[in-house]
């Protein structure tokens, strides 16, 4: 097997809940709890889950906006692996050239007082790459690649002079300007109109091929994940409950949560009767969760083994398809 581009092992993020000024916190929100996955070069992994399941926190840890409480993030750089959690200044510099992020909100992710040129060329500028003229050429080239044509008319506009879709194109250009190998895309299309979001997704797919980048694509929409990603990981309350190749996972969902998510996807057929959603209740709080399976409170299949034992490990059920469920594993 080729070396993975990104390797995440036992990643954990705990947020303390302060109960008093001087007392040590005793309760923690387990935002991300023991998450492991790998992303191969050029591959896109979709991270799917409902609000509050820790998918954005995972993404932010991968770009080091948030420090991890525990676990390892390794990033491949010219054959060697950078340990993202323990990099020195020099390693940080290299890391910043390899990894970028695209944000959800195109209206808030750009400084309203800086021009498009300043926004896109910021990584070049702070990392001291190229001369001013070279940066201008590079920005113009990227603007054309993301479909903001003619580039010169866009370069010295301000973000408020562009539409949401255009801004997201600028955000993509900014992420690509230093030629990264890995981009975390945090629901980049969830705030756009449907038609525009499709054109943005198409653009991202084309550019991924052209620039040879991998995405960690965070979304709550399985349809978007199916369109964008080679593999999908489903998260629930800080844990990955199922991970596998997109088509395999969608065709044979094994975890009850994944099945519930799939049954919630609308079908474009007015006469189709939607199967009843099997699970009940809302998402639980991840404050000091009990050791059993995270899904135990909502699971329709719950059995003795689930109550007796800890959270089920991710186990391979064939075809690279991993699931974290005692019952589902047996039914294979």
């Amino acid at each position: 097997m080729t070396q993975p581009l990104v390797k995440v092992e036992g990643l954990r993020k705990l947020y303390p809940l302060h109960k008093g000024v001087f007392r040590k916190p005793t309760e923690y929100i387990h935002a991300v709890d023991d998450v492991s996955f790998e992303i191969a070069p050029g591959e896109s992994l979709g991270l799917v889950g409902e609000s509050g399941c820790g998918k954005t926190t995972t993404g932010r840890m991968l770009v080091r906006l948030t420090g991890a409480s525990d676990g390892q993030i390794l990033l491949q750089d010219d054959g060697s692996m950078i340990d993202v959690a323990h990099v020195d200044r020099d390693g940080m510099k290299r890391f910043r050239r390899r990894v970028q992020m695209i944000f959800q909100d195109p209206y808030e992710s750009m400084n309203p007082r800086r021009t498009i040129f300043d926004t896109i060329s910021e990584p070049l500028q702070v990392q001291g790459i190229g001369t001013v003229a070279e940066r201008e050429e590079r920005v113009a080239e990227l603007l054309e690649m993301v479909g903001l044509i003619p580039a010169p008319t866009f370069m010295f506009r301000f973000p408020h002079q562009l539409s949401g879709g255009q801004r997201q194109r600028v955000a993509i250009a900014r992420a690509l300007v230093i030629d990264p190998s890995f981009i975390v895309a945090d629901e980049p299309t969830s705030m756009l109109d449907v038609g525009i979001s499709i054109s943005i997704m198409e653009l991202m797919l084309n550019l991924a091929e052209e620039f040879d980048v991998s995405y960690l694509y965070i979304t709550h929409d399985l349809a978007v994940a199916r369109y964008m990603c080679d593999r999908i990981a489903v998260m629930y309350l800080g844990k990955i409950v199922e991970i596998g190749p997109t088509e395999e996972l969608l065709a044979n969902p094994r975890h009850p949560y994944t099945r519930a998510l799939l049954s919630a996807v609308p079908v474009p057929d007015p006469s189709s009767v939607r199967p009843a959603v099997e699970i009940e209740g809302g998402i639980a709080k991840a404050v000091n969760p009990p050791p059993q399976c995270r899904f135990i409170g909502r699971c329709p299949w719950v059995q003795d083994i689930c109550r007796r034992r800890g959270h089920p490990p991710l186990e391979d059920t064939g075809n690279d398809h991993l699931v974290s469920c005692y019952v589902a594993k047996e039914s294979v």
Partner: peptide
Amino acid sequence: VKPFIDAARIAGGGHLHVIFRHIIPN
């Protein structure tokens, strides 16, 4: 707390860059 501050940090900007280029102008 706006995302463009995060974006500037991901771009590799240090504390001074973020304070003087992004926070203070706003």
